[in-house]
Amino acid sequence: MKICFLMYPWERIDPETDSTLRLIHEAASRGLTVAITTPNSLTIRDSVPHAFCNVLKRSDKVPTSSVSFYNKAQFKRSKLPLAGFDAIIMRANPPLDTIALNFLDSVRNDTFIFNDIDGLRVANNKLYPASFSGEASRFIPTTHVSKSREYLEQVLAESATEKMIMKPLNGFGGEGVIVVEKSARQSFRSLLDFYIGGNANGNGNYVILQEYVEGAEKGDVRILMLNGEPIGAMRRVPSENDIRSNIHAGGQEVKHQLNKEEKELCKAIGPKLVRDGLYFVGLDVINGKLIEVNVLSPGGIVRINRLNRVKLQTQVLDFISNVVAARELVVQRKNAFRKAIEDAESI
């Protein structure tokens, strides 16, 4: 199997904690052909989408340690047709590069793209949880999104709770997440001016004002979902005097077993994730409420592995391998049927 990782540059990897490196290491350990590229390396030649790739050189013995593997990895630079890969694994960091998705549109029937292009388009924003309906909707906190200062001030004033969460629509990694309180409404307009920016003509950034979920100060739960099912979780505890639980924002991870409500949440939203082609995602959950769905390059594999003595990357690669094998079987059957018809025609 030939796999291309469309990701951030190799030199930006933190080998101690990087989830993508674990997937690459697992693929290399299986003897698969592994290529690495970035959105900036995509190109078209003679109307055929290509990428300037770093192809991992094969080794007689792949190091068992991901850190050693990273340090010893050697690559060969090549320009390769994207349609030649069996799978393209999307692991680029936010924000979403829509131009990169446009390159992939023309090869989506030739290669398995993980996660699906259309799924990334619809889900790579903080509005995606609002699309869940029916049973799943009870797990979604009340959310308001606007760039109208007057409307957001009204929302805060009419809130049934003393506190709300405010964050930029396009932020990631806990960037810009703050708690606002009714008692501090005098400074709220100043905060909105900063977050929204723009001018009186309606320009500026969208802001999310969200129901404050009790227990947020104790941290959140990161759940990794594969093909609509939870495969691992951890609790992220914020650092002192910080509401954000994100590891990059100073949070710490602790072992966690999903409770009944969290399992019900996963069961309720799993089918929609699969329908949208979102096969591997990270859910951020606080007290049974779905706060965010991370679809571009969800992390947590290394920390969940360490806390539970598992290797989640093996499950992810098993899934990709099974999908590729199933697609190949369909092609083989189709070719066999076409051959039978051609043979009958020549009789």
Rank of each mutant, 00 (worst) to 15 (best):
I231C: 11
L273N: 05
E264K: 03
R275F: 06
G232K: 13
L273P: 08
G277P: 03
Q252N: 13
I243D: 05
N259C: 07
R222V: 06
S245H: 04
R275L: 12
G232H: 10
R222K: 15
G250A: 02
P238T: 09
D242I: 01
M234H: 09
K255V: 04
A249P: 02
N246E: 08
V274G: 06
E229W: 03
K267F: 10
S239K: 15
K272W: 06
L273Y: 07
M225S: 12
R222W: 07
H248P: 01
R236G: 04
G228K: 10
L224A: 11
Q257M: 01
L224F: 12
V274Q: 10
S239W: 00
V274Y: 09
Q257N: 13
S245E: 12
V221A: 10
I243T: 06
K267W: 04
L224Q: 14
N241W: 00
K267P: 08
I243S: 06
E253K: 00
L265T: 08
K263D: 05
E262R: 03
K267C: 11
K260G: 00
V274H: 05
N227L: 07
N241P: 00
I231W: 13
V274C: 09
P238N: 12
N259Q: 09
K260P: 00
V274K: 09
G219C: 13
I223P: 10
E264N: 06
E262L: 04
N246K: 02
N246L: 03
R222H: 12
P230Q: 14
L265D: 05
H256C: 01
V274W: 11
V221R: 10
E261A: 06
S245W: 04
G277W: 08
I247P: 01
L258E: 03
I223S: 13
G277Y: 08
E261D: 07
Q257F: 01
R275T: 09
E262I: 01
N241T: 00
Q257L: 02
P271F: 07
L278P: 07
V254I: 14
V237T: 13
A233C: 12
L265N: 04
K260V: 02
K255E: 11
S245K: 02
E264R: 02
D220P: 13
K272Q: 15
L226P: 11
Q252D: 10
N246G: 05
D242Q: 11
G251H: 02
L258V: 00
N241I: 00
E229Q: 15
G250N: 03
E240K: 15
L224M: 15
G277D: 09
E261G: 00
P271L: 08
I231R: 15
Q252R: 11
N246A: 04
A249T: 02
N259M: 05
N259K: 09
A233Q: 10
G250W: 02
L226S: 11
G277I: 06
D220E: 15
M234L: 14
Q252C: 02
A233S: 15
I269D: 05
P230S: 14
C266I: 03
K255A: 12
A233L: 05
H248D: 05
K260E: 15
K272V: 08
V237W: 03
G251W: 01
A268R: 02
A233H: 10
L258T: 00
E253L: 00
A268P: 04
A233W: 05
M225T: 14
L278S: 04
E253D: 02
Q252S: 14
H256L: 01
R244G: 05
L278R: 05
K255P: 01
D242K: 13
